[in-house]
Design a protein around this nucleic acid. Structure first.
Length: 216
DNA sequence: ATCCCGAGGG
DNA sequence: CCCTCTGGAT
C-alpha cells in the first residue's frame, strides 16, 4: 500500500480517473424493479454470482414482487426457489423475516438510512450501502464486496482484509461524489479484467500505476 | 481446489 | 480474530 496519505490520495485520483474512462456507464448488474427487490437481490448475492441471482429473482419476484407478498410466502417455498444461490436456508429465513419487518415497521417500504437497514435480518453494511447508493442515490458509504476488496488492495489503496476497515481507508481518499460509481466500476473491472484467479494484466489500463500487490 | 456484489455468531 | 452457512462455475 501507499503508506503516506497524500500518496494514497494521489493513487486514488489515478484510479478514479481511469475507472471513469474505462467504465463511464457502469451500473448495478442485479435486476430489480423497486428498492425492495434490490434489497432482496443483494441479500441473495452473498457468495454467488450476479448472473445466478438474476436467474433466481426472475421467478422469485414474479411470485412475490413486494414485501407483503414475500412476508406471506412459506419459507420452504422460498428455499426451493433460491436454492441454487447457496446458503439458501439462511437466505430464505432472512428475506422472509426482513420482509415481515418491513411490513411491520415501515408499511412495506424500504427505509432510507443505514442504521435502519442494518437492523434488518441478513442486511449488513455492504447490502445497506448497495440499496442506499443504487436505489436511492444516497452515498452513505462505499460498497466493499469481494471485488472491491481485492482490487483496492492490489492497487495499493488499502492494506486491510476486513471489509469495514477497507471501507474506512477508502472513505479517506475517495471524494464523496464518487462513492457510488466507484464500487460499480471496480466491480465491472474485477469481473472483466482484474479477476481473482487469472487477472488479464496484459489488457489492463491500470497496469501503469498498479503496484500489483497480491498478484503473482 | 478456488471463487462468487456476505452476514451472523462465538 | 475465527468459524459456519451452500451451490454452481471454472
Amino acid at each position: 500500500m501507499f503508506e503516506d496519505l497524500a500518496e494514497r490520495k494521489k493513487q486514488a485520483r489515478r484510479v478514479v480517473r481511469q475507472l471513469k474512462k474505462d467504465y463511464p456507464d457502469a451500473e448495478c448488474a442485479l435486476n430489480y424493479d423497486s428498492p425492495f427487490q434490490l434489497l432482496i437481490a443483494t441479500i441473495l448475492s452473498a457468495q454467488c454470482t450476479d448472473v445466478r441471482v438474476n436467474i433466481v429473482t426472475k421467478d422469485l419476484f414474479a411470485k412475490y414482487p413486494d414485501a407483503d407478498a414475500m412476508a406471506a410466502a412459506p419459507v420452504k417455498t422460498l428455499e426451493k426457489i433460491i436454492q441454487t444461490t447457496g446458503f439458501f436456508r439462511n437466505k430464505a429465513k432472512n428475506i422472509h423475516a426482513a420482509s415481515q419487518a418491513l411490513v411491520d415497521q415501515y408499511d412495506g417500504e424500504v427505509p432510507q438510512d443505514l442504521e435502519s437497514l442494518v437492523e434488518l435480518p441478513g442486511v449488513g453494511r455492504k447490502t445497506a450501502n448497495v440499496v442506499l447508493g443504487t436505489a436511492f442515490g444516497i452515498a452513505s458509504g462505499i460498497v466493499v464486496d469481494t471485488h472491491v476488496g481485492r482490487l483496492t488492495k492490489r492497487m495499493g489503496l488499502t492494506n486491510k482484509t476486513d471489509a469495514v476497515k477497507i471501507e474506512q481507508q477508502l472513505l479517506e481518499v475517495i471524494p464523496k461524489k464518487e462513492w457510488v460509481d466507484f464500487s460499480h466500476r471496480l466491480i465491472h473491472h474485477g469481473r472483466a479484467i482484474c479477476a481473482a484467479r487469472k487477472p488479464k494484466c496484459d489488457q489492463c489500463h491500470f497496469k501503469k500505476f498498479c503496484p500489483q500487490i497480491g498478484v503473482e
